[in-house]
Amino acid sequence: MSEPLLKIRDLSVHFRTSHGIAQVLRNVSLDLGRGRAVGVVGESGSGKSTLAASLLRLLPANLALLDGTIELDGRNLLDLPAAETMALRGTRFAMIFQDPMTALNPVFTIGNQLVELQRAKRPTASKAELRERAVQMLARVGIADPIRRLEQYPHEFSGGMRQRVMIAAALLTDADLLIADEPTTALDPTIEAQIVALMRTLHDEIGGTLLLISHSLGLISQLCDDVVVLYAGTVVETGPMAELFRNPLHPYTRALIACEIADDVTRGDKLASIPGEVPDVTRLPPGCIFANRCPDVVPACREAVPELRAFGPDRRAACSRI
């Protein structure tokens, strides 16, 4: 594989809360390969949204620790001054948010917003030129009559349309890395399927790097080349999508896959679940973070945090029992 676009090493992010210090991410290391679609799977409390927020440096004020490195073009982003990290947003990094209604400004027309967000990268371009790019991008994401639509406000679009506008906005920045945080959860299934197909086509055509954050294994399997499994703030497994889902190594990944409702399930069939609860990250247990829910746990698991070890060229898992 060529040099990855982004190298994250030992990223730790802690927050101050009323219950103590929440160690939301701990020693996260991963590579985002150029042109790859990387899926981050995680349930609530896994730290998946904090990971996205760390890349964009959109961390809340109760940040207690930000440690490790995020390397882009040989520079550690965490060492850059605030103004420089801000300059990366909308030029190198773009984000598709979960809820397009709150991400789009309700008092400006779509056209106005789609033109302005291109300014950072094209400061000298004429307004007419930027409008023309916006029209073309709206047409590409499947919005009919884009010239008229540019004059409309976000509330005049349906939920599926707004999500398309968000995707168009993110693509208009020509960013190297597109981060999508649960981009389809607010959408109905038939509209979600349209958006997923659209994202896949555009990713194939444009060839940027996509970081897709989702709790849906189905969505990740349809869109991603590589998968990162996060559990309670730490990477438990990474690997190429098909390999990881066909042959999961970590007990958490295996348990999560078993929770998927198979096609042959019918009424009254007992469904799988993972007993127990996600540990409180303000009071971390010693040893493996999954030990209290793991079916394969042995006493040694509760003593030391397992390292993320390599299993073959592209696979890694953090379990001492594999």
Binding site: S158, G160, M161, D188, P189, T190, I191, E192, A193, Q194, V196, A197, S216, L217, G218, L219, S221, Q222, M241, A242, F245, R246, I257, E260, D263
Partner: peptide
């Protein structure tokens, strides 16, 4: 349209066009 875990990507996609 119901997303399912499909590592071999065999799921057929009869996509609907248009909006509700």
């Amino acid at each position: 349209a119901t997303p399912r875990l499909d590592p071999d990507r065999t799921q057929s996609h009869t996509l609907l066009a248009g909006e509700i």
